[in-house]
Write a protein that binds this DNA or RNA. Structure first.
Lengths: 155, 155
DNA sequence: TTGATATAGATGCAATTGCATGAAAAATCA
DNA sequence: TGATTTTTCATGCAATTGCATCTATATCAA
């Protein structure tokens, strides 16, 4: 092993990781720019609302949102407050758990999902998918699916 | 095409993108936790210092750092100030450009790179590479290299 | 039960980020 | 040259994030 491999961040795994990080950040930023330009809130709002829509009864406990979005607890707590303040969801006291809250998707939230989707989809197409062949997209997706299955609980 | 494919974020490119984003975030967070636990600053400090070390004369203009790290201009400006305040680099007036600044790596900054590297490398190994075969890492890396070459200037 | 521990969620405060803008020098152009 | 535009970098202010901690309820063990 050369000296470079010991002291410099150029091992193959680090390089792969750096590319993963860089690609993800670059694309995220560009997608966010397009959402904002279209007058929409950040992608994290979409993620939360989408989880609500997918959920049984269109509602989830904050702790469930936390697990599904991988946001930190305090960020979920405050993000929910913002989404609720904007009228896209509402908070109700949990009936089963006295500590808990239940976040419910409002019709306005469903509308928002419907309206954001084409912009979101198009942005991902333009900033990401258009630069890969279909085979590359599939391969990438499969490798990442496998990776994620090993490192996270949900999804 | 089914209704679901029109209205729901489940097209193959979106799914691939979501996995990319999720994997990157999850791993980044865990790597950051390990760096912090070892008493080190965030990865962004490492990135900046590393770019300085790679650069001719161990120094760069902020605008160059911006291009290489993909950080926003105002974030570069303030990140540099923090790094300088911590004694890892210093700012000098640019000789060629009256508007400009030159950020120079200090010996303390080089030391920091050397000390952070094994922790960083190990964290990436544990949180990322250990969950992929060598072939998967290579494939992933190549696809992302190709993608990045199309969407960013530098690297 | 009761006492100890764990879980759910909120929040004060400090640090960081994003936005908008400013100042200064350079580059361009009429 | 002088005016205009562009580039470089900094910064005030608002929004968001991270950290630490708090309250309340639930769970568990004796």
């Amino acid at each position: 092993m050369t000296k470079a491999n010991v002291e410099n961040p150029n091992s193959a795994p680090i390089e792969a990781w750096a590319r993963l990080h860089r690609a993800s950040n670059t694309i995220l930023e560009r997608v966010e720019v397009k959402l904002k330009a279209a007058g929409f809130p950040p992608l994290s709002w979409y993620d939360v609302l989408l989880e609500l829509r997918k959920a049984e009864g269109h509602s989830l406990r904050p702790v469930e949102i936390e697990k599904r979005t991988l946001l930190a607890q305090y960020n979920v707590s405050r993000l929910i407050d913002r989404i609720v303040a904007a009228g896209y969801a509402e908070k109700r006291k949990s009936s089963e758990d006295g500590r808990g809250v239940r976040v419910c998707l409002c019709p306005e939230g469903e509308d928002l999902l419907v309206k954001m989707w084409p912009i979101y989809r198009q942005a991902v197409q333009t900033e990401f998918a258009d630069h890969l062949s279909q085979g590359e997209t599939e391969t990438l997706s499969l490798i990442l699916k496998n990776l994620l299955s090993q490192i996270v609980e949900v999804k």
